[in-house]
Design a protein around this nucleic acid. Sequence first.
RNA 1: GCCGCGUUCGUCUAGGGGUUUAGGACGCCGCCCUUUCACGGCGGUAACACGGGUUCAAAUCCCGUACGCGGUACCA
Length: 496
Amino acid sequence: MEGSVRVRFAPSPTGFLHIGGLRTALYNYLFARHFDDGTFILRIEDTDQSRYVEGAEEDIIRSLEWCGMTIDEGPENPGAFAPYRQSERQELYHKYAKELIDNDQAYYAFDTTEELDQMRERLQKSGNPSPKYDAITRQSMKNSLTLPQDEVDKRLEAGEEYVIRLKVPRRETVRFEDLIRGHVSFETKGLDDQVLLKSDGMPTYHLANVVDDHEMKITHVIRGEEWLSSTPKHILLYNAFGWDAPQMAHLPLIMSPSGGKLSKRKAEEEGIPVNTKDYINQNYEPEALVNFLAYLGWSPGDDSEIHSLDELSELFTLDRVSKGGAVFNHKKLLWYNEHYLREQSDEELAERLRDIAKNKDIDLPDDETLIKAISLLKERVSKIDEILEMGDFFFKDPESYEEKALKKWKDDSGALVRQYRESIESLDSDNFEAATLKSRLEDVIEKNDVGFGKLMMPLRIAVTGQGFGPDLFASMELLGKEIVIRRLDTALEKLD
RNA sequence: GCCGCGUUCGUCUAGGGGUUUAGGACGCCGCCCUUUCACGGCGGUAACACGGGUUCAAAUCCCGUACGCGGUACCA
């Protein structure tokens, strides 16, 4: 590859970082890291003042960090091409827009919104289903191509509002090679004369994007497929400036299980967290999200499924990105989450659980007990915080008994549990061990000539309040004699 | 409407003319392990959108059709 690779993730700060945006960032990141000297840049495209959301930029940066992506150049750590917020680069866009006017590639337009609407309406009435501000119509609009030069000057001097539009050629075929899709071509006749500079002085996406990608020496533009049909506009702009366009790669969209782009509304309806922030708040494992997202629209071509961010960087190539949209599969994400959860030691999990419990105002036992509880529970949960719910009985006496489990409490259950209680009451507190507890249970069922489950289930209900869960004898050992006896007494009182 | 891009198991995908009885993963189902629930192990279910070509041979190449998605703004 000629020169070193420079890619950018260029989100608009219009809200929390969306999961689709995160994947775009990830693919850019992986692509950059695939090369020894690749650079991953964050550029904030805040040119739409009306959609700007306070704190969005911060959210984007923290989200990327949480996933383990390091930003080489961005607003918080500017490189040689600062600033990295488009709102701070306005003079640049003005300079280049002016250059285009001077070269007769663009023009001033003074039409008001109403006039534009009128034009479209008029054209539609006369049988044009998709009216354009193009090479034909611009001849009858109010712009520096139709107005006398002195009037144009007068309007500009008077501070009248204007936009700058690109002179899109009337009939031309724009072709480019997309790294993912191959050969793509568009006819310019379907395009408007693009607004480059808006009347509020801000550039449009198209101008800012092209100028910045050029200025920042971006080599590869990797973005979502929703940009594919804008690409000819960008190619036209590169040509107008006489610049080489970067390589283009348009990623397939992430789809909702019900079809269509995974929007905020759809995702919520289907129970899919849509913002990276949600995954952070809901205690997902970042490695799981990263691994899952990487495989959503890409695969290394072998049968492997589990890879760290670094391994993914090594494996990632654009030619292995698939072309079709990829449906978000929440169950698979959970599978990844379980995997990365179980990879962690009980000690690590205990430490993290303390933080989570603190936020939820839950009291946790001492480290020794907690770590043992975790070892019993972590094979049974999908997310770390579920340990708290499933292991609830380790931390406090059951307040109620699960309805479904209660069906297992039969007429003879009370008598059996009572016998067992007597049997273990004589045990030393220090001798309250799983093996002993099990053999005592065997004694009781043998004496009564009943099956294991006859006592096992009622016992489980009494001790945990639930009909499922970790090994009961290990759990009782961990709970200790005092608590177990107390719970048996309570249950006998309430249920028998 | 117009323009563009797609289309292999329910989902993510491998495979890109003969190696394919189309492979893997998630899910689902069953069995084993476990007298709970899980983990784990083993097995099973299930796909080349359709129609025409090209070719000795097509999931793979070409053309249509259908369907899906995206775009069509002084939003990005």
